[in-house]
């Protein structure tokens, strides 16, 4: 029963989604709206499980005084403190907004700003024309980078922009679509296997 019940729920959910999406009656009855609502509620419960799991791990780390346990303490205070604040005054409340705007926002911007430094260093170390494929990749990357930035047009007229646009619109878009279609077909095949109960990895344990 531990496997059969989740399998039946999975199959029924999948059939309901197909019915809601692809059949007029399903659309008319608002099956997808219902499923969307269920999805949001399931998502909230998944987040709750994540919070519980995180709490167990970090409370254990604090109790056992593991290395860097202070960070675990900071994490728990921040997580529960902000959650409680949000529950009391909603996330638009003055203190909750202040914390978001003055703590999270600058930290977020800082982390993204650091990318400029790391990308510069990484491209310098990694971009080596070791093989023909690597050379093609390297030249393409430079053409697109300079083609998108205004300096490209200044140094090489608008030819480099045109070349970059060609690479993006044809070479890249074509490849991207091929990957997208292949990925979607793979996802459909996997979904079908899960619906039919042939794929059971998501239920845990060996297949």
């Amino acid at each position: 029963m531990r496997k059969e019940v989740p399998m039946i729920i999975t199959a029924l959910s999948a059939l309901a989604a197909v019915f809601g999406n692809f059949f007029w009656l399903g659309h008319h009855w608002g099956v997808m709206d219902l499923l969307d609502n269920w999805f949001n509620r399931s998502f909230a419960f998944a987040a709750l499980i994540g919070v519980i799991n995180l709490s167990i791990i970090h409370i254990n780390a604090i109790r056992r005084r593991k290395e860097n346990w202070v960070y675990s303490l900071i994490l728990l205070i921040a997580m529960y403190g902000y959650a409680i604040l949000g529950l009391i005054q909603t996330t638009d409340g003055p203190q909750a907004s202040w914390i978001y705007n003055n703590v999270l926002t600058p930290l977020d911007s800082t982390v993204f700003a650091l990318l400029a430094f790391y990308i510069t260093s990484a491209s310098y170390r990694a971009f080596r024309a070791r093989t023909v494929e690597a050379t093609v990749l390297l030249v393409t990357a430079i053409v697109v980078m300079l083609g998108v930035a205004p300096i490209g047009a200044v140094l090489f007229t608008d030819k480099i922009s045109s070349l970059a646009q060609w690479l993006l619109n044809y070479a890249n878009a074509g490849t991207y679509r091929a990957f997208s279609i292949a990925g979607s077909l793979g996802a459909m095949a996997t979904a079908l296997r899960i619906t039919l109960g042939l794929e059971r990895a998501h239920l845990g344990g060996a297949q």
């Binding site: 510069t120 080596r128 930035a149 205004p150 200044v154 140094l155």
Partner: peptide, 20 residues
């Protein structure tokens, strides 16, 4: 943004000169 892109290009060229 432009000068950053130019600097990265310069670094890639220098790195490859050294490599070869």
């Amino acid at each position: 943004l432009s000068l950053g892109a130019l600097f990265v290009t310069l670094l890639v060229i220098l790195g490859n000169i050294g490599y070869f």
